[in-house]
Design a protein around this nucleic acid. Sequence first.
DNA 1: GTTCGCGTCGCTGTATACAAGCTGTATACA
DNA 2: TGTATACAGCTTGTATACAGCGACGCGAAC
Lengths: 232, 232
Amino acid sequence: MTTVTDVSKADLVHRRLKEEIELGELAPGTPLSELSLVERTGASRTPVREALRRLAAEGLVDLVPRQGARVSRVSLQSVRDLFDFRSLLEPAAIRQATEAAAADAGLRREFTAMRTEFARLARRAPSQARSRAFYELADRFDWAIIGATRNEHLRRTIAELRPHTARLRNLSHVDPQRIEVSVEEHLSMCDALLAGDADAAAEAIAEHLTGSLETIFRNLARGPGDALDVLQ
Amino acid sequence: MTTVTDVSKADLVHRRLKEEIELGELAPGTPLSELSLVERTGASRTPVREALRRLAAEGLVDLVPRQGARVSRVSLQSVRDLFDFRSLLEPAAIRQATEAAAADAGLRREFTAMRTEFARLARRAPSQARSRAFYELADRFDWAIIGATRNEHLRRTIAELRPHTARLRNLSHVDPQRIEVSVEEHLSMCDALLAGDADAAAEAIAEHLTGSLETIFRNLARGPGDALDVLQ
DNA sequence: GTTCGCGTCGCTGTATACAAGCTGTATACA
DNA sequence: TGTATACAGCTTGTATACAGCGACGCGAAC
């Protein structure tokens, strides 16, 4: 979605707010008045306004006419909806990526390299640094899938869902155990994709999504007064 | 998507342009400079700008930074992408609608009424008026499905695709023969949905989409210099 | 005749002033 | 004490002025 040609102030403000929401620095429900953002960003109201409208279109901000904007809230239902929807889209996307890889040696090399990194990660001892490395790698994997998705609509829609997923990860504390499993799941995805087996790849990503959702739900249920007490 | 509470000028301009693009009154590629729209709509640049940005987010307008906006072009690939994507989403949506109808007598009544109208339509002789009546009814059917779709993301995404589909219909002249088949397909969808058979409903809508795509492609290939000579 | 450079014009990007609506509080009255 | 109403302060919605980039055309040089 966000191309490299971000230059206008509206783009800058948009990107900055998107990042802050994604990282959980701006908690769900935080009011975002245009004037306060003018102060914080140094831009004038026009680009701030445009950035807010864009975020609203992406579902990261709730906009109430003549009343103001707030960082969008996260409900159990919204989490379920998000993962159900991803479970519909992402198997189709990885299918397309599998076919694309079968016909493109460069793409195969890219996925092979990532597979190697996942395997190396699997052998490292759990640590903060390793977790961060995993997330960074998993992100690159996701973007590679998105990039290899032929269908324009599918590609854009999945890309638009990513900030929501990332936010959930940053709002809920993912337990280290889940990472072990997730690494394995990514290895399965790589293997299936590189083997040209679209069905297996789709199956693997579906499992991965199911597992992720379960973990998130477990962690939401846990910690009372945690980051996600903002649930409705 | 477009709620009834459209009141701001930005909403008005947005809705008006969306309609004109949908109806094909604004042909693909038509330049839309902000100033010309200020003249045409009577609003000032700010709401016009906002409307253009929204249309760009919906894919109805192509926006080139520091250069201007044009009504988005339609390519064979974009048509294929649109229908492939719909074929992924809409079977899932009608599945949800089928389940919703099974649990909601009011919804069942609504679909039963539409089924009756489709059946009546099937018995009428072909005419312009009948075609218009069919499209109007098919639209209502689509919206009923969208309304009965539980998943928020799925619902919004499908709704956002509708203007694209409608535009295709209005840019290419659909032959009357296709309508005969399409009425039957809608009857199948109604039947499956009312019978609570989600698989059959999904199958029926998939067939409907395949048939629609084929017709559009046939008609695009035909008429040289027709509405869709704007293809890239 | 062709190509390169420069200037003008029009457009978008931005800032800001003004208008209008909503919320919440304080006060007056029953 | 409870309720209703008016007002104050904030918010967003809109208009418009200004700045700066880009496209296009004209002219000059090769």
